[in-house]
C-alpha cells in the first residue's frame, strides 16, 4: 500500500476552483449581456456570488490538501 495518497479534498478543491471560475465568468457575462428571458430572482446575480463561493472554497481545499513532497 502506498503511504502517500493525494487527499480526496484536493480533487474536490480543484473541481470547485474550476467550477467557480466558470460560473463566476458566466455570471459576469450575464450581467453585461442580460438574457432575453432571465430566470426568476436574476436581480440577485446568484451566478456571481455562488461562483465566488465555489472558487474560494475550492482554492482553500486545493492549497490545504495539496500533495506534499515525501520527506
Amino acid at each position: 500500500m502506498h503511504k502517500h495518497r493525494i487527499s480526496i479534498w484536493f480533487f474536490i478543491g480543484l473541481l470547485l476552483t474550476v467550477y467557480g471560475v466558470l460560473i463566476f465568468g458566466a455570471g459576469i457575462y450575464e450581467l453585461s449581456h442580460p438574457q432575453e428571458h432571465p430566470v426568476q430572482m436574476a436581480q440577485y446575480h446568484a451566478g456571481i456570488w455562488w461562483g465566488v463561493l465555489l472558487f474560494v472554497m475550492g482554492l482553500f481545499y486545493t492549497i490545504k490538501f495539496r500533495p506534499k513532497k515525501e520527506p
Binding site: A26, E30, V39, Q40, A46, G47, W50
Partner: peptide
C-alpha cells in the same frame, strides 16, 4: 431549477 438557475448554475 429552470426557474432559478442561470447559465453555469444549471449545469451544476
Amino acid at each position: 431549477m429552470g426557474r432559478y438557475l442561470g447559465p453555469g448554475l444549471l449545469g451544476l
